[in-house]
């Protein structure tokens, strides 16, 4: 075994890429949960976004059009969940699980003719001479646009939730939907919009896997990232910046175990493959000791009685 075979620059650049799908999916779900809705369908929306993005990128030849289609696809499929839970007042847990199964099945159907094709590549952002700075250049400034977009999205969500009136209303609806309704806020409308935002983000996350990280289409290729995103939101205590740290921790561990497999560490592959999930959850459980952060109305259906 030779640990020096791991190149630190490539390692860090790699884990930023590994964390990005998770960031997209988790930040969307964070907004959804902050409005008091528990959508367990993240995995289903991701895989739907992965195939929508992949198909449109292949057909049009434009990866950015693919990402746009992924966002739209994720938002559209999330409307199914919004209809069930916000209009029909169905149970949120059951509806979310159904959405995941539906998304997995639908994507497999849509993706039949796309197996084995290579999608068009999204080029790296050109930072000009800055990209030539040693270490910082290759680590931070040699990535595609969507990776930076994910970062910007987290910061934007943090700013909106914390400093704007829109964010205050979102948090209020999640905290006590009856009180928000009494003050005249449209609870169902706000939640539906948040669910669609969550769907669009999950779709982007899925497309990031199928267009950039892996670049190809295989059935079920999101491989549980949606579930990790759900866990991440809870263990990050619904805080965007803590969520970012958790996502990088997970991405780092994924990259590390891949590298360790490559250099032939004497640990069975199965243990290495499960380690990012186990370690991320353990660390976040420790971080999330304060349990009071959960939105007060999380998972409860709202019905305006008179």
């Amino acid at each position: 075994m030779d640990l020096s075979a791991i190149n630190p620059v490539l390692f860090i650049a790699g884990f930023l890429v590994a964390a990005t799908p998770l960031i997209f999916a988790a930040i969307g779900e964070l907004v959804v949960e902050r409005t008091g809705v528990l959508n367990l369908g993240v995995e289903g929306m991701m895989i739907a976004g992965a195939i929508c993005g992949f198909a449109v990128a292949v057909e049009t030849g434009s990866p950015l059009a693919g990402f746009a289609a992924a966002a739209i696809g994720g938002a559209v499929i999330s409307l199914l969940f919004a209809f069930l839970t916000q209009v029909m007042l169905a149970n949120q847990v059951a509806s979310g699980l159904a959405l995941t199964l539906f998304g997995l099945g639908l994507s497999a159907l849509l993706g039949q003719s796309y197996v084995g094709i290579k999608p068009p590549r999204l080029g790296d952002v050109d930072f000009g001479p800055l990209a030539d700075i040693p270490v910082i250049g290759p680590v931070l400034l040699s990535h595609d646009l969507m990776l930076y977009a994910a970062l910007a999205l987290v910061i934007a969500v943090w700013v909106v939730l914390r400093f704007t009136r829109l964010g205050l209303i979102l948090r209020a609806v999640g905290e006590n939907h009856d009180a928000a309704h009494a003050l005249g806020y449209k609870v169902v409308r706000i939640r539906t919009a948040a669910i669609m935002f969550g769907g669009a983000c999950a779709g982007l996350g899925g497309a990031y896997i199928s267009l950039i990280r892996v670049p190809q289409w295989t059935e079920g290729m999101t491989a549980g990232v949606g579930w990790i995103a759900l866990a991440l939101v809870v263990f990050a205590s619904w805080k965007p910046l803590r969520l970012l740290i958790g996502a990088y921790l997970f991405g780092g561990l994924v990259q590390l175990q891949l590298n360790l497999q490559a250099v032939g560490v004497a640990i069975p592959v199965e243990y290495l493959a499960m380690s990012p999930y186990v370690i991320t959850i353990v660390v976040l459980v420790i971080l999330s000791a304060d349990r009071t952060a959960a939105p007060g109305s999380l998972g409860r259906n709202f019905h305006a009685s008179s």
């Binding site: 009136r165 205050l168 209303i169 948090r171 209020a172 905290e175 006590n176 009856d178 009180a179 928000a180 009494a182 003050l183 806020y185 009071t292 939105p295 007060g296």
Partner: peptide
Amino acid sequence: VFQHFSLFNALSVAENIALGMENA
């Protein structure tokens, strides 16, 4: 002023008041 308070426990006093105002 509501009988069952229409307040948000996890928010601050000022945030609660802002939510009940137009053009806060």
